[in-house]
Simulated assay, not measured.
Amino acid sequence: MAGAPVASVTANTPKKSYTIAVIPGNGVGQEVIPISVEALRKVGSLEGFDLSFEELPIGGVALDLVGVPLPEETLTKAKQSDAVLLGAVGWPKYDDNPKPMKPITALFQLRAALGVFSNLRPVRVFPHLVDSTYLRKDTSLGVDLLIIRELTGGIYNAHPRGFTTNEQGDEVGFCTELYSATEVSCIHLFQGL
């Protein structure tokens, strides 16, 4: 339609709506996640989509509230959401807990349940902050990297692992480094980013 105002077309277009599971976790997560939610709300309003947020416990907060690091409700709602906004998991208060009751166990369980196979860790040195690092200026200026960290295989998750005694009678620990073809091919998808 020639001459039709753009606003009328936009006004009649249904808004997209997304549900985000907000999982602040512990420590710095409690500080940065509320700011992240504010930023997402602003982006949604500027881009014309609705965002609904539901805060869910994980890690130490969940241990304090319900006695387990990953409550079933948190896992169920995370699976039902369009996205998950996760803060930090872990807290020194729980360092001596048995492994199934450590906050970090919740992170591993959540990753596995959601099929999260990697995380992206950008490294960029901004010119106005180059003097804030201990790195040499000529080495750090212009750094712009993307580190792709695989999360499902390797030493973190592989078996067998454990403790034994070697031929000299020394106690030794072992943890097998293991990757499947599927895990490698998932990471390979990022080639060329």
Rank of each mutant, 00 (worst) to 15 (best):
A112T: 10
R121C: 05
E38F: 05
P34T: 11
F163N: 12
A88S: 12
V32T: 13
G29C: 01
T182L: 14
N12C: 08
S52D: 06
V66L: 08
Q80Y: 00
L70V: 11
A11L: 15
L86Q: 02
E171Y: 11
T19P: 06
E171Q: 14
L120K: 04
L189S: 11
V89A: 08
N97H: 13
R161C: 04
L151F: 00
L129G: 06
P14N: 06
T76H: 10
D144Q: 13
E72R: 13
A112M: 08
K16D: 08
G59V: 00
Q191R: 03
T165C: 09
E72C: 08
G87E: 07
G153W: 00
G27F: 03
V6I: 15
T76I: 08
V125A: 10
Y134I: 10
A2R: 11
S8D: 13
I155L: 12
V28D: 09
M1P: 11
I23W: 15
V68C: 04
K137F: 04
I187N: 01
V84D: 02
T176V: 00
P71K: 04
H159R: 14
K77D: 02
E183M: 10
L107V: 05
C175A: 14
I20K: 03
H159N: 14
P160N: 02
G115C: 11
K79Y: 13
V9D: 01
H159Y: 15
P14Y: 05
I155F: 07
I35C: 13
E47W: 10
L145W: 12
A106R: 06
V172K: 03
K15R: 15
D64E: 15
V32M: 09
E150W: 02
V61L: 11
A106F: 08
L86P: 05
E31V: 00
A158H: 02
P57C: 05
G115A: 09
P122W: 03
F108W: 14
G29F: 01
A39C: 12
P71R: 06
L141Q: 12
K42E: 15
A2S: 13
I155K: 09
Y134R: 09
I20P: 00
T152I: 05
Y18A: 04
G162C: 02
G27W: 02
T139R: 09
I33V: 11
F126E: 07
E150I: 06
N12S: 14
I58Y: 00
E150F: 02
V6R: 15
A88Q: 02
E72F: 12
P5L: 14
L189T: 08
P5E: 09
T152H: 03
F163G: 08
E72Y: 12
A39H: 10
V125W: 08
A181R: 06
V123C: 15
A83D: 10
A106D: 05
T176R: 05
Y179A: 04
P69S: 00
F108E: 06
F108N: 07
L193S: 06
R111H: 05
A106I: 00
K137H: 07
V9G: 07
D144E: 14
S8I: 13
C175D: 13
T76N: 11
D138T: 11
K16E: 10
G27Q: 07
A11V: 12
Q80I: 06
P160R: 04
A112H: 09
I187K: 01
K99G: 09
T164D: 02
A181G: 00
